[in-house]
Simulated assay, not measured.
Amino acid sequence: MSNIIEPNNLCPLLVVIVNYRTANLTIDCLRSLVSEVQSLPGMQAVVVDNDSGDGSAEKIGTAIKTEGWSDWASLLPSDYNGGFAFGNNAGIRPALKSSNPPPYFFLLNPDSIARPGALKVLVDFMDEHPQAGIAGSALEKPDGEPWHITFRFPTILSELDGGLNLGIVSKLLSNWVIDRSMPPDKPSETDWIPGASFIIRREVFDSIGLMDEGYFLYYEETDFCLQAKRAGWSCWYVPQSLVQHIGGQSTGYTYDSLEPAKRLPTYRFDSRRRYFVKNHGLLYALLADTVWILGFASWRLRRVIQRKPDTDPPQLLSDFIRNSVFFKGGASS
């Protein structure tokens, strides 16, 4: 069941939503785009269903038809779940190959709600900043709390900080800590932004190609933003564009810090290893693994001595070591 819309020369933006067993949320996400279509005439959206196998594709296709969205929304069922990058590429690739590819592509998670004007703000920003290759929205947690955070690229020093979990070290390494608090009232340049909601200029794909499908989930947007930066494109955080993001509805990992930590999936370690080996080489990846393992081992000992609660994911240290470069080398999976 598909109804792929061919982009035309009036299409200012193609929205790509990758669904995996979140049909109801995807339909709500599409519903939030109705007002955006009015502010961006010709805008189109494609939902890629990553082989959900639970009736999601049929349910979404029916909603597109019954809600009267068929003139701007379409469904692209996939018979294979290749992950986040794979799904987004499946939606982007046909548009890039069309006779009139849109100037911008907007990646939007299915568990997101675009607030009024969110997409128009990003399109206007990109029009006004021709060197900006990527720009992302401010995210809003389910309880309405704004999340003004972007990220720095991972380095050996950020891995040391992440493993140690020690306040004084985090202060000393503040310029390398991954999380980066952003001004809530003005656009700011940054390293990379969450893949839940960001816009990409078409020429970025001309420069670096599509997203790396070697990542199943996690690190694909980090890698993409790094490749774009190396090609001369800047990445921006635009808080005037607001998107509510529930988070973790396909993976089970949410913003809720009160929920017990879950064991991390193997693909998360695979993606981390792929990122470091691909972008910095095997030796650098070995050093990054070493400092994290030593730092985290010291944190686990310190936690016991200080009698602090154990909030780490189960078996994190053993899982990390088992999936490190030491045991898997440069393999991505």
Rank of each mutant, 00 (worst) to 15 (best):
I4M: 09
I4G: 02
N8A: 03
C11I: 01
L13S: 08
C29T: 08
E36P: 11
Q38P: 01
P41R: 01
P41A: 06
M43H: 08
A45P: 09
D49Q: 11
N50Q: 10
D51P: 03
G53Y: 03
G53W: 03
I60N: 03
T62M: 13
T62L: 15
I64K: 04
D71I: 08
W72Y: 10
W72E: 00
A73I: 01
S74T: 04
S74K: 05
L75R: 05
P77C: 06
N81G: 05
G82E: 03
F84W: 08
A85C: 07
G87S: 03
N89K: 05
G91L: 04
I92H: 04
P94V: 03
L96S: 08
S99V: 11
N100T: 10
N100A: 14
P101Y: 05
P101C: 09
P103E: 01
S112W: 08
S112N: 15
V121E: 14
L122Q: 06
E128D: 15
H129A: 04
S137I: 06
P142K: 08
P142E: 00
E145M: 14
E145R: 15
I149P: 01
T150W: 07
F151Q: 11
G162E: 02
G163I: 12
L164N: 05
N165S: 09
L173K: 07
S174R: 15
S174G: 08
D179Q: 12
M182S: 00
P184M: 00
D185C: 00
F205C: 08
I208A: 07
G209F: 12
D212N: 15
Y218H: 10
E221L: 02
E221G: 04
E221T: 12
A228F: 12
A231N: 04
A231V: 07
G232A: 02
W233M: 04
W233E: 02
W236Y: 12
W236T: 03
Y237D: 00
V238W: 03
S241D: 04
L242S: 07
I246F: 15
Q249A: 09
T251H: 09
P265R: 06
T266R: 15
F269S: 13
R272I: 05
Y284C: 05
Y284V: 01
A288T: 01
V291E: 05
V291L: 09
I293R: 10
F296Q: 05
F296P: 11
S298K: 11
W299C: 05
L301A: 13
D310Y: 11
T311P: 01
T311D: 09
P314V: 04
P314E: 04
Q315H: 15
L317A: 09
N323K: 12
F327Q: 13
S333T: 11
